[in-house]
């Protein structure tokens, strides 16, 4: 039978270990908190159903079908919501969370102010934040690569294009079109972004986003002046 002092020492050590471990490490495993329609998780050579409660690891890719939505708790402070036809890979978790968006669109919400960082990357662009809510999605492919749209609901997002070294801060209420994923445009308000569904609580309201990103482009056949 262990002594009472030994139990106290063990308890103190356990408490201390919790206190010393970075907060991000405690949330180093992500989880699908909501899914709708076809949601798959690609892990190595495996492909599993992305149902509610599915744990996600670094290297996993979440893929949504044409009717799919997934809400993922990346950390205790960071939640993402995918649109349909989206591929998002979890590149890193913990204090410096990072996801890679290779198709579709993604809402990101950071609650409070991160002690670390959070980034959404496309092959050409990186959007980094510490506390904000923003949306990033692929647009039309007009030049060589698809456009990347980003708009900010709250906070500020620092967008950079590593290949060109260009960067810009996008404030709340504004968006940018990164032409061909390479050329930054001037942040400005876009009407279509008002239709985005930022809700990530399926118990509060529908979470599906129906925004048609084609609206982001001027329709030359819809110009009447007289």
């Amino acid at each position: 039978m262990r002594s009472r002092n030994w139990i106290l020492i063990e308890s103190a050590a356990l408490l201390l270990s919790f206190l010393l471990v970075p907060a991000g490490f405690l949330a180093a495993q992500a989880e699908i908190t909501y899914s709708e329609g076809i949601v798959r998780v690609e892990r190595g050579t495996q492909s599993i159903d992305g149902v509610i409660g599915t744990p996600l690891e670094i290297g996993d890719t979440v893929v949504t079908g044409s009717d799919g939505i997934a809400i993922i708790a990346l950390t205790s402070q960071t939640t993402i919501k995918t649109r349909s036809d989206t591929r998002v890979k979890i590149d890193s978790l913990g204090e410096h969370a990072k996801v890679g968006l290779s198709s579709g669109g993604l809402f990101s919400r950071i609650i409070g102010h991160l002690s670390g960082s959070y980034e959404v990357a496309t092959p050409t662009t990186t959007a980094g934040v510490r506390g904000t809510e923003f949306f990033m999605a692929y647009g039309r492919t007009i030049d060589q690569n698809p456009d990347v749209w980003l708009c900010v609901n709250s906070g500020t997002v620092a967008v950079s294009v590593p290949k060109t070294g260009d960067n810009v801060d996008v404030p709340a209420g504004k968006g940018i079109d990164i032409l061909s994923g390479l050329k930054l445009t001037e942040p400005r308000p876009y009407k279509w972004t008002k239709q985005l569904n930022w809700n990530m609580d399926p118990n509060a309201a529908p979470v599906r986003d129906h925004t048609n990103l084609d609206q982001a482009y001027s329709d030359l056949l819809n110009q009447d002046y007289d």
């Binding site: 007009i142 456009d147 032409l179 445009t185 001037e186 001027s218 030359l220 110009q223």
Partner: peptide
């Protein structure tokens, strides 16, 4: 015929 001058995917003149 209408020709649109486009800058950053947006028409700026016609």
């Amino acid at each position: 015929l209408t020709y649109f001058f486009i800058r950053d995917r947006q028409p700026i003149a016609e």
